[in-house]
Design a protein around this nucleic acid. Sequence first.
DNA 1: AATGTGACCCTCT
DNA 2: GAGAGGGCCACAT
Length: 142
Amino acid sequence: MGEFSDAVFQQVVRIPRGKVATYGQIARLIGSPRSARYVGYALRGNPSPGMAETDIPCHRVIFKDGSLCKSFAFGGPEEQREMLEQEGVSFLDDGRVNLDAHLWNPNAGDESGNDANGKAGANASLPTAPPPDFNWKLELGE
DNA sequence: AATGTGACCCTCT
DNA sequence: GAGAGGGCCACAT
């Protein structure tokens, strides 16, 4: 595996249980905002897919819209949906993931909790609905 | 070695 | 607001 794929796995494993991340998020985290497409390609060859902490929870990686990828390796989007529901991820009537409630915020160590109140002043508070757009862009300085 | 393709996202018409 | 196109990295042929 190349460094790219390795970096992808490094970030994907950090996604806490009950949270989901988008391909774009992972792409930004590894320093290639425009290579979201290849994040999926890297996950395609994931060594240990599964829900365990030691495994790579690629089922937690979804589209920016909240929909699931059509070509999921486990057995289709249905299986992926089952796994996410088991982790407590809620779905909308559209069949899409409720990103407002379960989107992972990599900047705020969610491992301790999903408060994400570490951010001062900004649009941090997410009692029920975090901002649709994150400020990671600003950090990248694009 | 070059070319094509793939679990996507952003920007410009 | 919607459609088209480019971009990016790794791997197989």
